[in-house]
């Protein structure tokens, strides 16, 4: 049995039931890392929120999401709360706003342990400090006592990473965890993510719009477009035999080293024009 099984997941919003995710199927095995790639509005974040059970009130999800055999869709809030932070955790896109501005970050990380392990504050604090060191924060004791506004974006994102990983979840959902960071910090955070995932053996669903980033972390990739999975395979397969024109466009933009100096850089639109898509829909 896979760790996570998603079958015909459909998510629609509002009274008019506008579908953001239209019949998505995939699985993630223990310790496997799956990348989900697609442009904004393609349904990647909605898929991630659906498998956390964190969709907004006006969303309706159908189909099946099973985590360790537990059905997520339609499960009561209390059951979901027990899974969140324990079996599955999430790293969000926006580190500047993801942490409570009125609470010291060490306490926020420690909350995960208190919630799921009933940890006492003393030992929890030691675990928090060592986890903060593990995600590459120097001077973790000082960071634990800092408020979010006293930290940089890269530091905050690593705090969020520490929160997501401290309770050794089976699956970590990362929603564009490095998009808001500048490129040098991005590389560092990805490297730390890779290290801690390897150390804990957790599986990962990694969402990004950047194939280059996904290929650094993941073994397999799903390509999403307009709420559907249009291509799935290993990173290597995607790079060599992409079938969907949109995927070929993504591959071209991720492999800029193939572009000759002086030549115009490729864009996704060279392979898959939005005009054509508009025509398709009509």
């Amino acid at each position: 049995m896979s760790l996570l099984e998603v079958r015909d997941l459909r998510v629609s919003f509002g009274r008019r039931k506008i579908e953001a995710v239209r019949g998505v199927d995939f699985e993630i095995a223990e310790g496997q890392r799956l990348g989900v790639i697609g442009e904004s509005g393609s349904g990647k974040t909605v898929t991630a929120l659906a498998l956390m059970g964190l969709l907004p009130d006006n969303a309706t999800a159908t189909g099946s999401v099973r985590l360790r055999g537990n059905e997520i869709i339609g499960a009561p809030e209390v059951a979901l709360a027990r899974l969140r932070g324990d079996a599955v955790s999430m790293v969000f896109q926006e580190p500047m706003t993801a942490l409570d501005p009125t609470m010291r970050v060490g306490r926020q990380v420690a909350e995960v342990l208190r919630l799921h392990q009933g940890a006492e504050s003393g030992p929890a604090r030691d675990r928090v400090v060592s986890m903060l060191a593990e995600v590459g924060l120097t001077d973790p004791t000082r960071i634990a006592d800092a408020y979010p506004h006293q930290l940089s974006g890269g530091q905050r994102q690593r705090v969020v990473l520490a929160m997501a990983l401290i309770n050794s979840p089976d699956l970590v959902v990362c929603d564009e965890p490095t998009t808001a960071l500048d490129v040098t910090v991005q590389a560092l955070v990805l490297q730390k993510l890779d290290e801690v995932l390897t150390a804990s053996g957790a599986a990962c669903l990694f969402i990004s719009h950047d194939l280059a980033v996904v290929s650094q972390v993941c073994d397999r990739v799903l390509v999403m477009l307009d709420g559907e999975v249009v291509e799935a395979g290993t990173v290597a397969e995607l790079f060599t035999d992409a079938t969907h024109p949109y995927t070929r466009g993504l591959v071209a933009t991720a492999r800029l080293e193939l572009t000759r100096p002086g030549q115009r850089l490729p864009t996704v639109e060279d392979f898959y024009a939005p005009e054509a898509r508009l025509g398709e829909r009509a």
Binding site: D86, S89, A98, D100, L115
Partner: peptide, 20 residues
């Protein structure tokens, strides 16, 4: 976002509101 983060680590909606 921090409310969503609180939910994602396992607080129920009411307890997330009380806590954060």
């Amino acid at each position: 976002d921090y409310y969503r983060t609180a939910r994602s680590i396992g607080w129920t909606p009411m307890r997330a509101l009380l806590r954060h």
